[in-house]
Amino acid sequence: MITLFYLAGAIAVISTAAVIVQTNIVHALLYLILSLLAVAVVFYVLGAPFAAALEAIVYAGAILVLFLFVIMMLNLGQHTREQERSWLSARMFVAPGIMSALLLGQFLNVMSQIDQDMAITRVGVMEVSALLFGPYVLAVELASILLLAGLVSAYHLAKK
């Protein structure tokens, strides 16, 4: 199981890196799906099967399909690769790279001070559901309203 964690983590990192350097948007999307599925595996290893399932279904399934629809609508694809390549020079990565490296360095610096192990206990659907429909029921309602608002505004914005 522990090996699986590191393996899935490595796949997630590599495929995400591939997303941000891809010039073909459809390939990038596939790498993103791979990354999300790897993260779902990590969730499963960490004892959160419900989250892992949602990650696979909602993220990889629903959201990225939405992306795919839009890419098809905008008719992006093979022919935009040249343009993407011209936009993506190495120089573009310098400042963001330094910034992110600094941020990550600070993060690692803080993390290195923690030295705790976590015992993996399985937290199943039942516990999560008991919380969701118990103390957090109001938050769930709010989340549904947020989704409704997203739906309405997306409809409005995408309208001709």
Binding site: I2, V45, L46, M111, Q116, D117, M118, A119, I120
Partner: peptide
């Protein structure tokens, strides 16, 4: 089984 929390 345990995994160091900082790795996650």
């Amino acid at each position: 089984e345990t995994i160091p929390v900082e790795h996650g």
